[in-house]
Structures are given as C-alpha cells and as structure tokens.
Write a protein that binds this DNA or RNA. Structure first.
Lengths: 185, 185
DNA sequence: GCAATCATGTAAAACGTTACATGATTCG
DNA sequence: CGAATCATGTAACGTTTTACATGATTGC
C-alpha cells in the first residue's frame, strides 16, 4: 500500500489496521531486514531535520510477486485472543465495581479505535486500492460498532451478577476504581 | 467452568469459544501438566469403554484464587490476526474469481461458527455462571453476524472487477485453492 | 522538568505451532 | 476400506514479546 518505514508500519497496525493484525517492533524490524536480504524490498535512507533518520522500504517486483503467491492461500478463521472476553466469562467471580471499570475501559478502547478508522477515511490511498481499503475499513467499523452496541445493551448481564449473590457491595477495589455506571437497576 | 480434559478444552476453543481464544494441543497438554505440578489443578484419570482413557482436570482452591488474581488485570485491546482481512486489503491484486471463492468460504466459516454458538445455548452451564456465559455467547453472535451482514452487502467492493468482466459467476468454485496466482488481467 | 513522540535496532526468553507417535472405534 | 473422532503426549522449530540501548524534539 505504498512505501513505509518500520515505525510507520507499527503506527498503522496500532491505529486503522488494529482490527486486522498486530506486530511489535521486535517482529517488524528483523522482518524488514530479512525481506531486504531476500531482495523483496528496497530500502532508502532518509535524513530528516529535527527528527531521527528513517529507512523507507518499498516492495520490489519480486516482492510483489511473492506477496501475491502468499495471498492465494485461502484464509482460515481469524485467530483471536480476547483477554476481555476471558475475563467476562468469569465476571461472576469478580467484584461488580471492577467489572464496571473494565466495561468502561473497553468502551473507551472501542471508541478510540472507531475514531481512528473514521480519521483514516480521509487519508490518501494509492489508486486502484480505494475499494479494497474501503471494504476493510468498513468491516472494522461494522464489527467494532456491533461490539460497542452489544456491550452497552448487555452490560447488566455481567455487572449484575454479584448483586444477586451478595447482600453487601464491597468497595475493596485495590486498583484505581472509577465507577461511573453502576447505578442503573 | 467445570471439570474438563485437554481434549475437551480444545473442542470448546474450536467451537463455542472460538471467538474468545485459541490454543493447540501442544499448548494445552503441557499447560495442564504445569498447572498440576503447581497444585492449581487436580487430575482424575477416567477409564472409558470403547474410548481411550481420559484425564479430567479440576481447579483447586489455590487454582481458583490464582485465576482471580490474573483476572484483576484490566485487559487491553483484543489481539487479532485476520489472514482474511489482509487478503482483502490486496483484493485488487488477485483474480476476481479467487476473491469470490474466498468470500464464499468465509461466509461458510461464519455460518458454522454461528451455528455452534446457537447449539451451545442449550448446553448446561454451572449455576451462577449463566449470565456471564450468555453475555459472552451473545457478544460472539453480535460480532459474527455483523461481519456476515457486512460481507454480504459489501462484497461487490472487492469483487468489483468481476462485475466489470461480465455476469458469468460460476458456482462450481470448490473450497479448494486453484494455484492460478499469476493469472493475467 | 518530565513525559511522550519519533526512530531503529538487538538479544534473551517466552511462547506457540507443527509434526510425529500411538491406537481403538465409528461412520460412510 | 479409508477417514474421522476420541485421546494424550513430546520435541523441534519458528515466531514474538519484552526489555534494553540510544538520543533529539515537542508538548504540558
């Protein structure tokens, strides 16, 4: 999708592409070095003023060919690790105030990911790639919004869990507790 | 969520929990062995007729305590690797027939995952965990359905070239991959 | 002044998958 | 009769994170 440095790739994977894939610097930099060794990308060093130098990588013809080869494999199901959902599965074991806190944090995460997707609407995309990029962005929006709405409308299922079981509600949250949404009943 | 063997845990992560987390046998069996060594689970060997023996693991009190400790960490964003979305990002580089095939396969995967979630509605859940389990199942349904609907209504964005090329959309496409790859435009 | 952003990279350690080994039973 | 399901496990290999190292500039 155009030339980029390792740092820029990381930022993309944290922002508008966070619903697609993730990678750390320790994965990205060695990968770029390997690709360059194999002649699949070229590297152009750019000096910048008031900023560290950067290395901008670009696909070679062989690189593009190899990419296409990789892409012909029919993809299996997405691989997901949701610490959030694992936690929700055991919501009944935890203090309701903590669950409320987790839910608020999650809604904040979803809101900021959606905001980043909206922002990237206006960012330029190379010719011929507009509709592919639009499809992927739209997919992210649809899924993130579904998650957001579902959580908003069903949070009572996990925040109410211990209300039934216990008589007293303890304020013994050793973490920083910011309720903000426990009341509704 | 009750006692289980390694094999059963794997089946859960392939079926009703596939939208939460994944793990292979090579991760599960060593993990169970470690947990047992640390006294966090107990293991009961059960002989079965006409089936291999199985080892049924159960959380100990210390195991449950440790679990709760782990769960008090506020979860970050979900970690996702979607080969499907990566491919869609480069849809414009691939033959439209191949994209159509990939889309059909994906819709099939989503349908079967949803079916498994519906099935698990009727499976028994230990007392006190009903609403947590329901929340997580409902989340999965909401998100998978959103993906399904989005793909159905926006597949033209990535299959676009096929529309230009003319009507003949072959239903004879198998789930098998055709190594076409280089096929010209 | 302190934290964050920009920017690249290495090495140890942790993590996880894949492939293999074994073997009975059931389904088509 | 071959494939899938049930069932556990190991080892090699590959991948990935985490932590460290460095350093200028910008924002609060």
């Amino acid at each position: 999708m155009g030339d980029a440095s390792g740092y820029e790739i990381k930022k993309l994977l944290e922002g508008p592409f966070s619903h697609i894939h993730e990678a750390s610097f320790g994965a990205i930099y060695p990968a770029l070095a390997r690709l360059q060794e194999d002649g699949l990308v070229t590297c152009e060093e750019r000096s910048q003023e008031k900023r560290p130098d950067k290395k901008v990588y670009a696909l070679t013809q062989r690189g593009r060919f190899d990419l296409i080869q990789e892409l012909t494999v029919i993809p299996g199901p997405d691989r997901i690790r949701s610490d959030f959902l694992v936690l929700m599965l055991y919501a009944h074991l935890l203090p309701p105030a903590h669950i409320a806190n987790v839910i608020e944090t999650r809604l904040g995460i979803l809101t900021s990911l959606l905001a980043e997707l909206e922002n990237s609407d206006t960012s330029p995309v190379p010719a011929g790639e507009e509709s592919s990029a639009e499809f992927v962005r739209g997919y992210g929006k649809a899924v993130l919004q579904a998650a957001q709405h579902y959580i908003e409308e069903n949070r009572h299922l996990v925040e109410g869990a211990a209300l039934v079981a216990g008589g007293a509600r303890s304020e013994t949250d050793e973490k920083k507790e910011r309720p903000a949404g426990v009341a509704a009943e």
